[in-house]
Amino acid sequence: MPRLIPVDPLWPDEGQVAGPVGGPRVAGQTVLLAGATSVAGVAVAAALAEAGARVLAVGSNAERLERVRAVAPDTSVYTCNLADFAAVTALAATVHAEHGPIDGLVHLVGGWRGGGGLDGQTDEDWDFLHERVVQTLRHTTRAFNADLLASMAGRLAIVSSVSVTSPTPGGANYASAKAAAETWIRAVGHGFAKSGDSAAAVIFAVRALDGLERRLAAEVVALWDSPAPALNNTRRILAP
């Protein structure tokens, strides 16, 4: 029996199916990882490569990108400032020239700033979170949206936080940025649904990603095992 993933009850009418239920597999798919140099990014890259996907890893630091190559030697790596839309469009042009259109985009760019109650929610922290969490997502999805729509199995995934539905004063900046990212993903998913039944946008929500990297990697790989309509605009909670 396939394992069921808890679905946030605040998001109604969402499917819970995970695992092999038919449909396309990830082998042979071209998947771009944005923010690939984190522990989670390395784990996802390794799992995708082992499953037979073509992995394209994007980060801001060439030296750290070698962590990905260490676990997935055939990975193509790219340095890019994903907060700069011009740089992202140039990245898309390079990727298309070297690999053609992509079939998957996994957005792992993030970071935490918070604490100090509501008075501690500084403009500097907000700017940092908005740039990393929201702007990088906006830029990458806009640059590669046509690819995902054209793919026979387009998949888009982000990692969000359960704090979106239970924010605290000390995490208000962080939860607000994550909420904005989730709203953006829902909008992209709505566009996917209007355009057909081959592309899906998925939100993975965690309380803390530490210790869940391999679990996340397995869930990303499994996105290609389920049909897009069962996945699109679902919010899936990953808990220990």
Rank of each mutant, 00 (worst) to 15 (best):
Glu213Cys: 06
Thr37His: 01
Val31Met: 03
Leu10Glu: 06
Trp126Asp: 05
Arg142Pro: 00
Ala228Thr: 09
Gly15Val: 04
Gly116Phe: 08
Asp147His: 13
Ser163Trp: 05
Asp103Lys: 04
Asn233Val: 06
Leu129Glu: 06
Val109His: 08
Glu98Lys: 12
Ala201Ser: 12
Arg186Ile: 00
Arg132Tyr: 10
His139Tyr: 10
Thr234Tyr: 02
Phe144Ser: 02
Arg67Ile: 04
Pro101His: 09
Val95Thr: 03
Ala47Arg: 15
Ala18Val: 04
Ala201His: 05
Val95Lys: 05
Arg64Val: 00
Val71Asn: 09
Ala200Phe: 03
Leu82Lys: 06
Pro2Leu: 06
Ser166Asp: 14
Thr75Met: 03
Gly189Tyr: 00
Ala177His: 10
Arg235Glu: 02
Ile102Ser: 01
Arg64Phe: 01
His96Ser: 10
Ala218His: 04
Pro20His: 05
Ala87Pro: 07
Ala157Gln: 04
Pro24Tyr: 00
Gly19Val: 05
Ala177Ile: 07
Ala239Asn: 10
Leu223Ser: 03
Ala97Met: 08
Trp184Phe: 03
Ala218Ile: 00
Ala93Trp: 00
Trp126Gln: 04
Gly41Leu: 11
Pro73Tyr: 08
Leu32Gln: 05
Ala43Val: 06
Val220His: 00
Asp119Ser: 13
Arg3Leu: 13
Asp74Met: 08
Val77Phe: 02
Arg54Thr: 15
Ala43Ser: 15
Leu212Glu: 10
Gly22Val: 09
Ala230Gly: 01
Ala53Pro: 07
Gly104Cys: 05
Val106Glu: 02
Val42Lys: 06
Gly52Ile: 09
Arg54Tyr: 01
Asp84Met: 05
Arg214Asp: 15
Ala208Glu: 15
Ala90Pro: 00
Leu32Met: 15
Pro169Val: 10
Ala70Met: 09
Gly52Asn: 10
Val221Ser: 02
Ser176Ile: 06
Pro229Asn: 07
Val31Asn: 02
Gly19Arg: 08
Val221Tyr: 03
Val133Asn: 13
Ala153Lys: 05
Glu213Asp: 13
Ser60Cys: 04
Asn233Trp: 01
Ala86Thr: 13
Gly120Pro: 08
Ser151His: 08
Ala153Cys: 13
Thr165Ala: 12
Gly41His: 09
Glu63Leu: 11
Ala45Val: 08
Gly120Glu: 12
Ala83Pro: 03
Thr79Trp: 03
Cys80Lys: 07
Glu66His: 11
Ala201Asn: 09
His107Thr: 06
Gly171Met: 14
Gly100Thr: 09
Val71Thr: 13
Val7Thr: 15
Ala201Trp: 05
Ser151Gly: 11
Ala201Cys: 11
Leu148Ala: 11
Ser160Leu: 02
Ala40Gly: 10
Leu209Lys: 04
Val55Thr: 04
Leu137Ser: 12
Val220Asn: 02
Ala205Val: 01
Ala62Cys: 01
Leu32Gly: 01
Asn232Leu: 07
Leu216His: 07
Arg214Ala: 13
Lys194Gln: 14
Ala49Asp: 15
Ala47Thr: 08
Thr30Met: 01
Ala175Met: 10
Phe85Arg: 12
Glu213Tyr: 06
Leu212Arg: 14
Gln135Ala: 13
Asp210Arg: 15
Leu108Phe: 11
Ser176Arg: 05
Ser166Gly: 09
Ala34Leu: 08
Pro12Ala: 12
